[in-house]
């Protein structure tokens, strides 16, 4: 039987059938896999937070290596002593604070509402870390991360990741040679929360000067780098009141 594929009615029916088939296929897949995907995302967040405070499987000169997904939940409860949610002036404990979506909280700020800001207190070898989540814009899409601070506001470790930065250029913000540079820099300039600038041509490629609030930028990734600078600055300023208290103690 030859079908006349030029008829309008055929086109409409074909389109409708196609939408139903493809739609149900995708819906079926999404619902079937969602629990596994959610779990993976949860593990990833725990791995990222731990990574920032230096709990990771990194070896000398190697790449980024997280603690394994099989142990991440144990490690997370072992090292993260407290999870706080800061809402306006109130600070409450919440063991699921790490699941808070920073994107949504930043949107609340833009609407003039009070956000719920998560903050994690980690402890390793007697040192206390205050880990702040970050969220911002790169060149193409979202970038995010975590920064671990000690009580003097010196960075003890960072983690960055991105959704769609250019491979080989901006995408390298999640590489060790970029992230490792932040360790030891202060986010303070006198008493101002200046953050850390991803600076071009600061003549310090090995990042030996730790008092200039600057790290060396990635070649070919100016806008992603500026996004990282802006993200750090914005995030630490959101937690200003809390961090002030940490410094006074």
């Amino acid at each position: 039987m030859a079908i006349n594929t030029d008829k309008n009615i055929y086109t409409v029916i074909f389109a409708a059938v196609m939408v139903v088939v493809v739609g149900s296929l995708l819906a079926f897949m999404a619902s079937g896999l969602s629990s596994r995907i959610k779990e993976n995302e949860r593990f990833e967040k725990q791995q990222n937070i731990l990574y920032a405070m230096g709990v990771n499987d990194n070896v000398e000169d190697g790449g980024v290596s997280f603690v394994g997904t099989d142990v991440v939940e144990n490690e997370f409860s072992k090292y993260i002593k407290k999870q706080l949610v800061i809402k306006g002036d109130s600070i409450i404990d919440d063991n699921e604070a790490y699941l808070i979506d920073m994107k949504r909280q930043l949107a609340l700020i833009n609407k003039g509402e009070t956000p719920e800001l998560p903050l994690f207190i980690g402890e390793k070898d007697g040192e206390e870390y205050h880990i702040i989540p970050m969220y911002g814009k790169g060149l193409w899409d979202a970038i995010w991360g975590f920064v671990a601070l000690d009580k003097d506001m010196v960075v003890q470790g960072v983690f960055f990741d991105h959704k769609g930065e250019t491979p080989g250029l901006g995408a390298n913000i999640n590489q060790r040679y970029f992230m490792d540079d932040f360790t030891g820099e202060s986010i303070l300039q006198d008493t101002r929360y200046a953050g850390i600038d991803v600076a071009k041509g600061n003549n310090d490629p090995l990042n030996e000067r730790k008092d200039d609030n600057k790290v060396d930028a990635l070649a070919g990734a100016t806008i992603t780098g500026d996004g990282v600078s802006a993200m750090i600055k914005q995030s630490v300023n959101l937690y200003k009141d809390y961090l002030n208290k940490v410094r006074e103690n």
């Binding site: 594929t5 030029d6 055929y10 086109t11 074909f14 389109a15």
Partner: peptide
């Protein structure tokens, strides 16, 4: 290929 409407 034989059932795809040319228009879409």
């Amino acid at each position: 290929r034989n059932i795809i409407p040319a228009k879409i």
